[in-house]
Design a protein around this nucleic acid. Structure first.
Lengths: 351, 351
DNA sequence: TTGAAAGCGATACCAA
DNA sequence: TTGGTATCGCTTTCAA
């Protein structure tokens, strides 16, 4: 067994408090005594105060959690998530705080346990879909939370950093509508739980499960409503995941249909890149494609998209958590977005 | 204040043990009592057992640490590091374990404290250069460690997963030598602490500080020694970081020299991509370039490189940590590599 | 099936 | 400057 602080105290012939002070409050004892303590500690093989015991006593941990609604590996697989995390890491680093990435089991009960069991001082919740329960659990624990979108039942203490999803989506869609497109498909992830990839009919955009997807689709619909294309005339395509492959899979059938859409608006760049893959695969007439996020690959692919500041989103989330603003209003941050027009969109081909 | 387990026990009129069991060992009490406890707990706003207290008592945490020798944000910025982490995350997820990413302060003492203070059950050390001290600190703490390379003073309990750096490097270099290149520059990061970017004369490859860089450079040198080019005839280029920009900066002067190298062998893909950037910038005759790692961008850039299984490296590291093999020999894993020849290398141009 | 007692390893307050 | 004492919140034998 590793010796404890107690053992060191006995060896040196001082009290535990003094040994503790030698580590945590050097100014509380003479340099000589401190050195003597540290030396015997080393000699005894005492590895320094036990982090867990220290956390318990102090009442804080020195780490913040980051939560993803989907598999943890998603955090490192999705380009946007990675950039978000880079921002979080930057802020945490500056603050001298560690980052705890908590995987959530697939089952609800297990996921709840995982959130309850995380030893952290607060949480950045990257993206909560219907899983608003996460925020509830954290509130019960009394832990500060920062989310990446406002909650429906937001209290004054809620902190979030997001973008105006709907307006941003509306902007790309308006660009596409302005090019003359009217036979259009919208592509999103997590539209409804457990649907097959491909076309889906929904009475209303409100029926979309995932809040972010819902907001973006609503924005798309807004722009088309304005040029006289109703929701019911838009093709809704559901992807089974937010990935390139899922995007390609979801759009395949629609592209092969007798009257394929002349434009596909995707809720993320990775989905849009999947559409471009499918297009390259299928051949056929040109189809305009737009994405959302402006990840690095988007530029290379010439993808028209909405740029949002990924790293900044992460950085600000962590900052909001690590040093909460005095003014609660400052806890609600809306970041700017920009329409980035590249070569993946163009006028409707004359047939 | 949040109520404690104690408060719940009193409210229900049972002992603390029983409440504890209600959460951690449901089979130890009647379903009815358990339900009664859970109900009052909810009613009281008890958020469940405190994770820190639980860890202290149990003696384990349920999280493993991941350590990077450089800034934490590097973990999310470097493509290879991200893939490594994705592998670690996958294994951790399967095991139901969280991941603690610990930022290391720039100063040695602070860094040491950070490592001592991390509440985890073990560590994956991604890449330890001269900072072998990390492993020493962890040994003192008695924490299991997995590194991505064997240590010089490796004990039988040491676990690592790596590749044969030297042989892999030798293979690319042999390819380049086989194309006829003799005036060659080698480009590496962390060659010596605190040098300026650009050319550096070193008596010997053994003088290279960073073990991985050293091994790769040694492999390069091996191949050229075989065709009669001595270490002293090779140009050594030092980059100040493992990044694209640093690669470009380090190579710029050499390319502008009267007799520029006909080939540049870099110790990583990001450095090599920087070289390609510099080449594109500078114009001039074609220069063969090779990288190391085979990150996604390498393929797009047509970079000849060494492929190593990034995710797998991470996954196996975490697995070695999470369930240690009974046979200590199984704790030393050497992963395969492959030479990937693309368009960035070609014969020496006739002048 | 339930409870009592004994820690887990440290920190913080206050007194000396 | 140093030490005593009371916790931090929970788990875990072991006995009832």
């Amino acid at each position: 067994m590793k010796p404890t602080l107690q053992a060191v105290a006995e060896a040196v012939g001082v009290s535990r408090s003094t040994v503790s002070n030698a580590y945590s409050r050097p100014d509380q004892l003479s340099a000589a005594l401190r050195q003597r303590i540290l030396d015997t500690a080393r000699q005894l093989g005492y590895p320094g105060p036990n982090p867990t015991a220290r956390s318990l006593r102090r009442g804080w941990v020195g780490a913040i959690g980051v939560l993803f609604e989907s598999r943890l590996s998603y955090a490192f697989t999705d380009p946007f998530a990675v950039r978000f995390l880079a921002g979080v890491a930057e802020a945490a680093e500056r603050h001298g705080t560690s980052l705890l990435l908590v995987p959530l089991p697939a089952d609800q009960a297990g996921a709840r346990r995982a959130v309850e069991d995380a030893a952290v001082d607060g949480f950045c919740v990257y993206c909560v879909g219907d899983e608003g329960w996460v925020v509830d659990v954290l509130r019960e624990r009394g832990l500060p939370v920062v989310t990446t979108a406002p909650r429906e039942d937001a209290g004054p203490d809620d902190r979030y950093v997001g973008i105006d999803e709907r307006a941003a989506a509306r902007a790309v869609a308006a660009h596409v509508a302005g090019l003359g497109h009217r036979r259009v498909a919208l592509l999103g992830d997590a539209v409804r739980p457990g649907v097959a990839p491909g076309e889906l009919r929904l009475p209303d955009v409100a029926a979309v499960a995932h809040p972010t997807t819902r907001a973006r689709l609503a924005g798309f619909a807004d722009a088309f409503a304005e040029v006289g294309v109703a929701w019911s005339e838009l093709t809704l395509l559901a992807a089974t995941a937010n990935s390139r492959a899922a995007g390609a899979a979801a759009v395949a059938a629609a592209l092969a249909a007798p009257e394929p859409p002349t434009a596909v608006l995707a809720c993320s760049d990775v989905l849009a890149l999947g559409v471009l893959d499918a297009l390259a695969e299928a051949g056929g007439p040109p189809v305009s494609v737009t994405g959302f996020d402006d990840i690095a690959e988007a530029a290379a692919a010439g993808l028209t998209t909405v740029r949002q500041p990924a790293e900044e989103k992460g950085r600000i989330s962590a900052q909001l958590l690590l040093d909460p603003p005095a003014d609660p209003a400052a806890g609600h941050v809306l970041l700017p977005t920009a329409l980035v027009v590249r070569t993946s969109t163009g006028p409707v081909p004359r047939s």
